[in-house]
């Protein structure tokens, strides 16, 4: 994942903020984060903790940063308990989560049981991702006919998903 500002260097600082109930996520590289003045270390307790940099131990409880819109859980709460507040926290604290999970598990993708009634939606989601990848590749390779066909298939899937939910 590259930095959102310079789009060149890999992002090492991930910032999630909730402004007026809207969640915003920013991924920055080291240089850009300094340039933007995001240097307050207490603002990065979550990122540090999740990335396992160990620096979080020195940090005070943070007041800035992510708060789950669904349950009000903050990253300070996570730091304290090592537990999440609700299912939506997995999306709220998505940045950095992967790095933490990488250290804990064998992979980052669930490969086990899917509840029968969600199986269809999961398969559709996977198919969609695959088609989008193919579409990007087709566009890059200037294969416009194939791209148009892929676009139609994606639209069909989207419609299906809408009617299902």
């Amino acid at each position: 994942m590259n930095c959102d500002v310079c789009k060149q260097k890999p992002a090492t600082v991930f910032l999630t903020q909730i402004v007026d109930g809207k969640m915003q996520k920013v991924n920055l590289c080291e240089a850009c984060s300094k340039e933007k003045g995001v240097t307050d270390p207490t603002g990065f307790a979550l990122a540090d903790l999740l990335l396992g940099l160990g620096a979080s131990q020195e940090m005070e409880k943070s007041t800035v940063g992510a708060r789950c819109p669904a349950c009000g859980f903050s990253h300070a709460d996570f730091k304290k308990t090592g537990r999440f507040g609700c299912a939506a926290c997995y999306d709220t604290f998505a940045d950095g989560l992967e790095n933490m999970l990488k250290g804990m598990h064998k992979g980052l993708e669930h490969r086990g049981k899917v509840p029968p009634r969600l199986l269809k939606a999961k398969l559709r989601d996977e198919e969609m991702k695959k088609l989008q990848r193919e579409l990007r590749k087709a566009v890059a390779d200037e294969k416009y006919e194939a791209a148009a066909e892929l676009r139609d298939r994606i639209r069909n899937l989207e419609n299906e998903a809408h009617t299902a939910s």
Binding site: F84, H110, G112
Partner: peptide, 23 residues
């Protein structure tokens, strides 16, 4: 699972309070 709406994430699977149990 037929009777209750379990928290399930397309990427992470079954969601749990502790991330050490997720999937």
């Amino acid at each position: 699972g037929d009777k209750l709406d379990f928290a399930f994430h397309n990427q992470y699977g079954f969601l749990t309070a502790c991330p050490t149990n997720v999937g």
